[in-house]
Amino acid sequence: MNSIATFFTGNGALFSPSRTAPAPTAQPAVATEAATPAVAVETLCKKYGTHWAVDEVNFIVPKGWTVGLLGGNGAGKTTTIAMIMGLVVPTVGRAMVLGHDMATERHKVLKRMNFESPYVALPARLTVRENLNVFGRLYGVPGIKQKIEELAEEFGLGDIMDRLTGRLSAGQKTRVAVAKALINDPDVLVLDEPTASLDPDRADWVRSRLRAYQQRKGATILMSSHNMLEVEQLCDFVVIMSRGRVVALGTCRELAEQFQCKNLDEVFIKLARGA
């Protein structure tokens, strides 16, 4: 467990000593593409006013892994994800994706990323087909018409392709949003509550699609979720946050053993109640 946790926290320190300076990176200045982790979060901090929403977070996501970012409401997950996506600039530290600092070089890597979040919606007045067409073209997807048909087939969107996105059910919207997130075959996929509004059957179906995509493409997935069963099914590794800090990390089994719990659900509750 220690070895894998050390790998995930980069330099071996879960909490770095100071938030005033970025943690030194152990990687050489010019890292090879293969050796570069998909995501590297180094001494990441974000301060809003006097409140540290994210406080010295360190972790590394190797390529091809699926990592769950967990925590209660206000734990700092969404802010961390926003910094990894480059939508929020860190106060201290940095978030690197495929070797590029997302605060300053995000344009170099955005074509290889995609995301889905309940905070964001696709334009309601456009049909599903129009939305997929627009985003496919934005990402420079070759053979966009064929790609849209493939996604429609894979996500069972055939009968809703020409309906306005705003008139779909919550579950249908989620499926369309996930289809949009996969339109450019991203190397790094960031998912915020990917199955939040789906019934258990549809949620399981979407999980199977994500797992199939991850295995087919060898993609890296970073996801936040409140569904512990989902995390256990999908994630190779879990990072748990509380009050802006990483409080535990490991595989689901390792965390259960560490906190003497039966499953991740119990670990989460134990940590949320201040264990």
Partner: peptide, 14 residues
């Protein structure tokens, strides 16, 4: 209004 700005900001659109 359509809460689409983050989608655009996360895309390669400059």
């Amino acid at each position: 209004w359509s809460r689409n700005l983050a989608n655009l900001m996360m895309s390669p659109l400059q």
